[in-house]
Design a protein around this nucleic acid. Structure first.
Lengths: 326, 326
DNA sequence: CTGTTAGCGCATTCAC
DNA sequence: GTGAATGCGCTAACAG
């Protein structure tokens, strides 16, 4: 039992059918009478048959790996928590399918790199993060239909809602001059929070104070300094990542600015450091694992289910209001 | 050029040799005259030949995936930063080999799960974390020689040195009653820091105050409360993970105990939250990515290079001494 | 619905 | 050293 060397032929023989029938039954698709179906299933169970994934994929011409291509300028992007969390989530989600995950960074200008990826016949599908509209229009043909994206247009968090809820909360608690540290402008996923911010500012007749970040805490520190220099009366800073928000808080503390008394701060991601920060960082949830798993499945399934995953605000100390988070 | 449909046969034809010879040249091993070798290489380059990984692995009977099996009791262990970082590092390191990574949790009592893994013929190798000696002795035969471990006995961080350096620093700065929040006792990798701690305590004639943690901040909070209840005069708490140390700091703050004035705290990992903590957490580096990549390569290569990766102390605010970290 | 016949693309025996 | 044959284990066409 559980002998590694039992093949489809053994199962077929024991079930009294042809290998083709056994294959049809065990691979799911294809017609089969109830009788032979049962016989094959029994035989497979008794023999402890385990299909050989590699042979199956060869015959089926479907690769064995899903590559997670992260488009970013920073060489160390593959150590970014978002990337590592997403990668691990995919690796866990695809394990039952016996499909592995590869991780690779591609540059902002990545046509050649994508072409190289497309020429790898071992690739079952690709999940692409950090894309923009133009890039998707020029995907290599072999990758079309096998690619799912994370971010705007693909599996994405409803960052507009999450950030919007935080901004609305800030407004409701008297903050009038709110600055936003947004994502990089080359990234499509940066747009929704910016749109939400502009809309709320306009509706409340408040000024627009927008600077670009890159999801790192270093940029958060720089952004905070820049904001307080350009607009000294700023009374709240919203960032689109917890790391950036923590950087903002560091810079404010260094400048002797109190949080939340002088300036409120909010982040995005609800990563563990947010709750552990001092004071505890207000933020919004980001179901990275669910998003990554959905994207991986979509890439394999062919049809990208353009789903927006919910983001819930977590009001904590730094937003200056009353605490109300479990 | 870069046509996906050029196969070994095409290369052979263009080079004027047989497919067998072309295979010998392109797959590295096997005899071949300099003449035909050059011809094959040229033809392959001109045609933009890309070997088909799946076919190659089928013929070679070598799987296409490396599974990262994490042995732990907690169901959410796969979201642990150590696990996600290691998984991403493997997925990036194995990408050039066209081998994907799968991630799976196995329970503490995992004989059956490992047997199931062993029966997967798509598996090229396994990297196991959270092992102990007994487990390794009972590895399924098909996994032997294809398994590398992370932690004691495998690719591991020199945690004894890292934690030892922190403890020595605490002692040198006048801390006399140091408690250690160690890893779980079922984990082999928990032992070295404990040994280092015992040795240093013994040499300095200091008491041993040892509690077990599990690398989470929740356990850190509980551990801190427990320590201060049992040994109220404790003047330093060393934890073997940053998350745990941050939990310790939270519990101390909640109890009105000042860090580092009343109690010094140190962690382990040098994760970003450590530097961002308030006060900044003293810790020691943990090259998780390098360790994971080395383990993955070792698993594929067959011979586990039992390497101890260095851990360097990062003295920051919480250890109470003079700051001295870049 | 089922069995037979061909491959999938490459690596590896063997003789030569 | 080289080529022809065989097989890896399974799936997909095609007739029946």
């Amino acid at each position: 039992m559980l002998d590694v060397r039992v093949g489809l032929a053994d199962v077929a023989r024991r079930a009294g059918v042809s290998p083709a029938t056994a294959s049809r039954v065990l691979s799911g698709s294809g017609p089969a009478s109830a009788t032979s179906r049962a016989a094959v299933l029994d035989a497979a169970a008794e023999l402890g048959y385990q299909p050989h994934p590699v042979a199956r994929q060869l015959a089926r011409r479907s690769g064995t790996r899903v590559v997670f291509a992260v488009r970013d300028a920073r060489p160390d992007i593959l150590r970014d928590p978002f990337v590592t969390r997403a990668t691990a989530a995919m690796a866990a989600a695809l394990d039952p399918y016996q499909i592995g995950v590869s991780l690779r960074r591609v540059g902002l200008d990545c046509a050649a790199e994508l072409a190289e990826l497309a020429s790898d016949r071992g690739l079952a599908a690709m999940v692409l993060a950090g894309h923009d509209r133009e890039l998707l229009a020029h995907l290599p043909s072999r990758l079309r239909g096998r690619t799912a994206t994370i971010g705007t247009g693909g599996a994405d968090v409803d960052s507009a809602a999450g950030v919007g809820a935080l901004l609305a909360h800030l407004q409701a608690h008297g903050r009038r001059r709110i600055a936003l540290v947004a994502g990089p402008s080359w990234l499509a996923a940066s747009a929704p929070p910016v749109a939400a911010y502009r809309e709320l500012a306009r509706a409340a007749g408040q000024p627009v104070r927008l600077v670009r970040g890159d999801f790192t805490s270093a940029r958060g520190r720089a952004a905070a300094r820049s904001i307080m220099r350009r607009w000294p009366d700023t009374d709240a800073i919203a960032a689109v990542s917890d790391a950036t928000a923590l950087g903002v808080m560091q810079a404010l503390a260094a400048a002797g600015i109190r949080v939340p008394d002088d300036v409120a701060v909010t982040g995005f991601d609800d990563a563990p450091p947010a709750a552990a920060a001092h004071p505890a960082l207000s933020t919004a949830t980001h179901p990275v694992e669910e998003i990554a798993a959905a994207a991986a499945r979509a890439a394999l399934g062919g049809s990208p289910p353009v789903t927006l995953f919910p983001s819930k605000p977590r009001f904590r100390r730094t937003c200056g209001g009353s605490a109300s988070t479990p």
